[in-house]
């Protein structure tokens, strides 16, 4: 029961959806659409579980007074404020929620990601050594794209922007397309393994 029922669900739902894709009849499409709606609704519960876990872990840190436990208080306070603002004070379009979004979430997110510019630059400084022909190609392509996308590139040589366009549209597209084919075929074969119950690791361990 604990093993068979989940396998029956994955097989039944999965193959029904695939069959429905090829049968454009009202009944099939309606059920398929309902499954998709349920799926998008249920998927949010995964995030809710994650948030519950975040609360649990940080509460434990505060209770046990582990290292840097004070920061967990800040995390929980801001999580609480954001959720109260979103759920009870004006909803998604509420003033407080939007205020927090504009003045906390957006600047912090943008700054966090911009911080990577420094680390990427320092990593490139160490990794970009033209030791082999392959590494040289990588270096040249990266330099062309970087220089060609700033005004100084155009100032050095007017053809730089066009060259960047060509690198992105021709050799880059060719390789990405090859990788995409490989990844998609791998993904499809993995999907079939999951639907047929050959691949079960996602269900986790535990007793049968």
């Amino acid at each position: 029961m604990k093993q068979t029922l989940p396998l029956f669900i994955v097989f039944g739902c999965g193959f029904f959806m695939i069959i429905a894709f090829f049968i454009p009849l009202g009944g099939f499409q309606d059920v398929s659409q309902t499954f998709e709606n349920w799926y998008t609704g249920v998927i949010a519960f995964f995030v809710f579980v994650g948030i519950l876990n975040l609360v649990r872990v940080n509460t434990e840190r505060i209770q046990k007074r582990t290292r840097d436990w004070q920061y967990s208080i800040i995390l929980l306070i801001f999580l609480g404020i954001m959720m109260v603002a979103g759920f009870f004070i004006g909803g998604r379009e509420g003033r407080l929620f939007l205020y927090l979004f504009d003045n906390f979430y957006i600047p912090l997110g943008a700054t966090m990601f911009s911080l990577l510019a420094f680390f990427v630059a320092s990593a490139a400084f160490r990794a970009f050594r033209a030791r082999t022909p392959e590494a040289t190609l990588l270096l040249i392509a990266a330099v062309i794209v970087m220089i060609g996308r700033v005004p100084v590139g155009y100032w050095i040589w007017h053809g730089f922007p066009s060259l960047v366009e060509w690198v992105m549209n021709v050799p880059n597209t060719a390789a990405k397309r090859g990788i995409l084919f490989g990844a998609d075929l791998g993904l499809i074969s993995m999907a079939l393994r999951v639907l047929l119950g050959i691949e079960r690791s996602y269900m986790g361990g535990g007793k049968e």
Binding site: T40, G41, I43, A44, F45, V47, F48, G50, I51, L54, Y71, S72, I74, L75, L76, I77, F78, L79, G80, I81, M82, M83, A85, G86, F87, G91, R92, F97, L100, F101, F104, Y105, L108, G109, M112
Partner: peptide, 22 residues
């Protein structure tokens, strides 16, 4: 700042997922 970001992000996504999906 890091912990504020984690808290605000988690709260933001909880609200968005609830109102947009669930």
């Amino acid at each position: 700042a890091e912990n504020i970001f984690v808290g605000v992000s988690a709260g933001y996504w909880a609200v968005v997922l609830w109102f947009d999906f669930t």
